[in-house]
Amino acid sequence: KELVLVLYDYQEKSPREVTVKKGDILTLLNSTNKDWWKVEVDDRQGFIPAAYLKKL
Rank of each mutant, 00 (worst) to 15 (best):
K1N: 12
K1E: 09
K1D: 11
K1Q: 13
K1W: 12
E2I: 12
E2R: 10
E2S: 12
E2C: 13
E2W: 10
E2F: 08
E2A: 11
E2V: 13
L3F: 14
L3T: 08
L3V: 08
L3K: 13
V4T: 03
V4E: 00
L5I: 14
L5W: 06
L5P: 00
L5K: 06
L5A: 05
L5E: 11
V6N: 00
V6A: 07
V6C: 08
V6I: 04
V6G: 01
V6H: 00
V6D: 00
L7N: 02
L7G: 01
L7D: 01
L7I: 08
L7E: 03
L7A: 03
L7R: 05
L7Q: 04
L7K: 05
Y8D: 10
Y8T: 08
Y8G: 08
Y8R: 14
D9M: 03
D9A: 07
D9Y: 04
D9K: 03
D9H: 06
Y10M: 01
Y10T: 01
Y10P: 01
Y10A: 00
Q11T: 14
Q11H: 14
Q11N: 14
Q11K: 14
Q11G: 08
E12H: 10
E12C: 13
E12K: 12
E12P: 10
E12S: 15
K13V: 08
K13N: 10
K13F: 06
K13R: 14
S14Y: 07
S14C: 09
S14V: 05
S14T: 13
S14E: 09
S14M: 08
P15K: 10
P15L: 12
P15D: 14
P15C: 09
P15W: 08
P15Y: 09
R16K: 13
R16Y: 14
R16G: 15
R16V: 09
R16L: 13
R16C: 15
R16N: 15
R16M: 13
E17V: 04
E17G: 13
E17N: 06
V18P: 02
V18Q: 02
V18R: 02
V18I: 14
V18H: 03
T19G: 05
T19W: 03
T19L: 03
T19Y: 03
T19C: 05
V20T: 04
V20C: 09
V20E: 00
V20L: 03
V20M: 02
V20Q: 01
K21H: 12
K21P: 01
K21N: 09
K22W: 03
K22R: 10
K22V: 07
K22N: 05
K22F: 06
K22Q: 11
K22M: 08
G23H: 06
G23F: 04
G23K: 02
D24Q: 15
D24A: 12
D24Y: 07
D24N: 08
I25H: 04
I25K: 05
L26H: 11
L26R: 03
L26M: 04
L26V: 13
L26C: 10
T27M: 12
T27W: 14
T27Q: 12
T27Y: 12
L28R: 01
L28P: 00
L28E: 01
L28W: 01
L29N: 02
L29P: 00
L29C: 07
N30L: 09
N30I: 07
N30M: 09
N30W: 07
N30P: 04
S31A: 13
T32A: 13
N33M: 10
N33A: 09
N33L: 09
N33F: 09
N33S: 10
N33H: 12
N33E: 09
K34P: 15
K34D: 11
K34Y: 08
D35V: 14
D35R: 11
D35K: 11
D35P: 02
D35N: 13
W36V: 04
W36F: 07
W36C: 09
W36I: 04
W36R: 04
W36A: 03
W36N: 03
W36P: 00
W37A: 03
W37H: 03
K38P: 01
K38C: 13
K38R: 10
K38T: 08
K38G: 06
K38Q: 14
K38F: 14
V39P: 00
V39C: 08
V39K: 00
E40D: 07
E40S: 09
E40G: 08
E40N: 06
V41S: 11
V41L: 10
V41A: 12
V41R: 11
D42R: 12
D42V: 12
D42G: 15
D42W: 09
D43K: 11
D43E: 13
D43Y: 13
D43P: 03
D43V: 08
D43S: 13
R44F: 07
R44W: 10
R44V: 08
R44D: 04
R44S: 06
R44K: 15
Q45D: 09
Q45I: 14
Q45E: 13
Q45F: 07
Q45W: 09
G46W: 06
G46D: 02
G46T: 06
G46F: 14
G46C: 09
G46N: 03
F47G: 01
F47I: 08
F47P: 00
I48Q: 00
I48V: 15
I48C: 13
I48D: 01
I48L: 13
I48K: 00
I48G: 01
P49R: 05
P49W: 03
A50I: 04
A50G: 05
A50W: 02
A50E: 04
A50H: 04
A50K: 08
A50C: 08
A50F: 02
A51I: 13
Y52C: 13
Y52V: 14
Y52R: 05
Y52T: 07
L53R: 00
L53A: 10
L53D: 00
K54C: 15
K54M: 15
K54H: 12
K54I: 13
K54W: 08
K54G: 05
K55Q: 08
K55G: 05
K55E: 07
K55T: 08
K55R: 14
K55Y: 09
L56S: 03
L56W: 08
L56R: 03
L56P: 02
L56D: 03
L56Y: 08
